[in-house]
Design a protein around this nucleic acid. Structure first.
Lengths: 210, 210
DNA sequence: GTCTATATTTGGATAGAC
DNA sequence: GTCTATCCAAATATAGAC
């Protein structure tokens, strides 16, 4: 008897569970790095967070830096996927921009927030080579933004340089992790709406109607 | 013979020189903390930067954290002074806002940039108490902004919430340290102008005329 | 795959001579 | 005010038993 359907299904539910420790390490790392910073998080703390001892961590990763690198790498993948989704959704450029802004804010404050915050703000904890590597991965993400902003500029929706605009927006959105509370009085839609209001010309903001 | 005029003048030029080492340590600390981050800068590196050995640093400061604290404290004083100057300058609110934005960008990219960048982005390297202390010092700085933005809102120059607007602006401006080059093609005035263009309603931007 | 035990390095900080 | 010498703690990482 070869592999039965039952065994296959077991395998399918188990395969991700085989990497469970690794995944849990990455999750814990993202959270701890976000909360305390990469340098102030020790491998011992990280190990404790998933219930193993520090030596065992190095069975899963060859170095502490590799953990940070992997957190960022997997996060960027998710960021690009989420942004593509937002970019392909709406037909009108106003709606598209709002969706992009909302998507970035969701990334920063939703379930993926730990990894995203780390990716936004802690790349300087990587060595030079890994920094460059991460930066080049982020370029695909930024391309989506630049395309949308260029389109918006052509249609007269914004009158600032797309490149500069995006960089200013990156800062404005990224910085929200330090003050915005997703469970506070200001909803994510309302925040996204305010960001739009800042960026877009008044006429178009009214049309976006959120 | 008591203190002669000559001796007094000597004293006056010398007195600041007595703190020379301390000042130079603070300058070097600001630069190194900015370039490599607080945790990745060792007291030994810091000492080497001013030509002494690590043990001697602790004659001037009781701990490494105190150095960071003092960098931030003195920087915030300068930030407040500079912002007050900008706030009191122009009569028209459009001009005032532009001056404030330009002032903040100057702080971030002029001679004080090291300390300002550290103050913006590295407060999480302080312990809880010192973090609170620095945060409360920054409040005076933020008050100037909030007053100006509130005034702008009353006059219909912006239509977003002043508090949210300021936080978004903080991020947008602060983030420029990671991409804007003061010696590049985009001048500081041009950058400030673009930031204004984003924040203010088009009609008023035209009037600000920079 | 985890544990025990430990090598090795580095960093902050101190004491006392000069 | 700086240097020499050094303490002490903490951190990354490794080797080998289980």
């Amino acid at each position: 008897m070869s592999v039965s359907a039952y065994e296959l299904s077991l395998q399918m539910t188990r395969t991700p569970r085989l990497d469970d420790r690794r995944e849990r390490l990455l999750d814990a790392a993202a959270r701890l790095f976000r909360e305390h910073g990469y340098e102030r998080t020790s491998v011992r703390q990280l190990a404790e967070a998933v219930g193993i001892l520090s030596g065992s961590v190095f069975h899963h990763f060859s170095s502490k830096e590799e953990i940070l690198l992997e957190v960022m790498r997997s996060t960027i993948e998710r960021m690009i996927a989420r942004l593509r989704e937002a970019s392909d959704s709406g037909a009108a450029i106003e709606e598209k921009l709002f969706n992009l802004i909302r998507a970035e804010l969701e990334l920063l404050h939703g379930p993926t927030r730990d990894g995203v915050a780390v990716t936004f703000f802690q790349w300087h904890s990587l060595g030079q080579d890994n920094q460059r590597s991460i930066l080049s991965m982020r370029e695909d993400y930024e391309k989506i933004w630049l395309n949308a902003l260029e389109q918006a500029r052509k249609q007269g929706l914004i009158d600032t340089d797309p490149f500069v605009t995006r960089r200013l927006l990156t800062g404005a959105n990224g910085w929200t992790i330090y003050w915005y509370k997703a469970d506070g009085p200001l909803g994510l839609d309302a925040l996204a709406s305010q960001v739009c209001q800042l960026m877009l010309k008044p006429a178009s903001v009214a049309e976006s109607g959120v």
